[in-house]
Design a protein around this nucleic acid. Structure first.
Length: 305
RNA sequence: GCUGAGGUAGUGAAGUGGUCAAACACGAUUGACUGUAAAUCAAUUGGCUCCGCCUUCGUAGGUUCGAAUCCUACCCUCAGCA
């Protein structure tokens, strides 16, 4: 299906824009490997759309591609900030758009690859983030208020509560957005091909279990402790799946086997949440890992650089 | 074999005569989600012909208007002693 798909084909002239290849999927679906392979074969550069990979010093626990795995393919979106520094979806969008331009200017194919649905959508659907400037002081002030107080504030100031009104973060954002409607495209930006890696649930599950088995003896514990030493435990970067477990394990609160088990369920839940997010996007072209390779390879082969 | 403790929903664990289909935690499922999203939050979690009904608290009996809660016997688990 979708054989009519074409972008950046030969007859568009020399100045055509190279396609943006977007690969999404849950954690452990193999999207990174696929992207590296294709990028290597067709002259691409990879922009990681992963809210955890942006943090320096957190490599193993976030499953960043190792240097040797990157196999000479330029990677972006990795090691952008230190744990504890604020890095938002809006920041990512800006960064990614710029990288896409730069990569295209080099006559390379940009690949946007990752499991952070919000990051991907911000780029693909050109999210506008109304109420643009992030008012740090105002936000900090709102953050100190209780949920009840925030609800009250909304009531008094005519701010419509978000669908999930018990999610403090959303309430605060609603207030900061100050009535501005959300803006996004209803279809992906031009010249953009979005592929989702579909994996059978039990296979995904066993891959996640497999990963959990070895991870605690791969140096993550040291990595986590070092990061905590430098930046503390209480920041967003350190809330990712494994780091709170490392904290408890290192403190002697849980055994290694318990940590592994917990990591497995946390990772599985992450995968499910990612899937829930991706599922509702009707523009994603879902394919198995192998089919995705074939599909994208054919598209890329026809691209005239 | 004796003595002590105990057997509660997927797991752990409350409850010790009525307001108990049974707290709570974990796990599971579904879902929301545009300025920290691997985050955060919501719903469901015995069955059904679902504003009510049915079957559950080791098993079988019994007491009682009424039992997960009291009594008896039995089965099983764990600890201590033989």
């Amino acid at each position: 299906m979708n054989t009519s798909y074409s972008l950046g084909t030969k007859n568009q002239g020399a100045k055509h824009v190279l396609p943006l290849i977007v690969i999404v999927g849950p954690t452990a679906s193999g999207k990174t490997g696929l992207a590296i392979r294709l990028a290597k074969e067709y002259g691409g550069e990879i922009i990681s759309a992963d809210s955890r990979a942006v943090y320096r010093g957190l490599d193993i626990g976030t499953a960043k591609p190792l240097r040797e795995e990157q196999r000479g393919v330029p990677h972006w979106g990795i090691d952008l900030v230190n744990p504890g520094e604020r890095f938002t979806a809006a920041d990512f969008k800006e960064y990614a758009m710029q990288k896409i331009d730069e990569i295209r200017a080099r006559r390379h194919i940009p690949f946007l690859v990752g499991g952070t649905g919000l990051y991907v959508n911000a780029v693909v659907y050109d999210f506008q983030f109304p109420g643009a400037t992030d008012n740090v002081e105002r936000r900090a002030k709102l953050d100190t208020m209780s949920l009840d107080e925030l609800h009250n504030y909304c009531k008094n100031n005519n701010v419509k509560l978000p669908e999930n009104r018990y999610n403090k973060r959303y309430v605060v954002n609603s207030i900061l957005r100050n009535g501005h409607a959300l803006k996004r495209r209803s279809a992906p930006i031009h010249n953009c091909c979005v592929v989702g890696i579909s994996t059978e649930k039990n296979i995904l599950r066993s891959r996640i279990a497999e990963r959990a088995k070895g991870i605690f003896t791969s140096g993550v514990v040291e990595e986590g402790l070092a990061a905590a030493e430098a930046y503390g435990w209480d920041n967003e970067a350190m809330t990712g799946n494994i780091y709170p477990l490392i904290r408890r394990y290192a403190a002697g609160e849980i055994f290694l086997s318990q940590a592994q088990e917990k990591y497995r369920t946390l990772d599985w839940r992450l995968a499910k949440r990612q899937l829930t997010w991706l599922k509702r996007d009707e523009h994603i072209h879902w394919l198995t890992l192998e089919a995705a390779y074939t599909y994208l390879a054919r598209i890329l082969a026809s691209v005239n650089k």
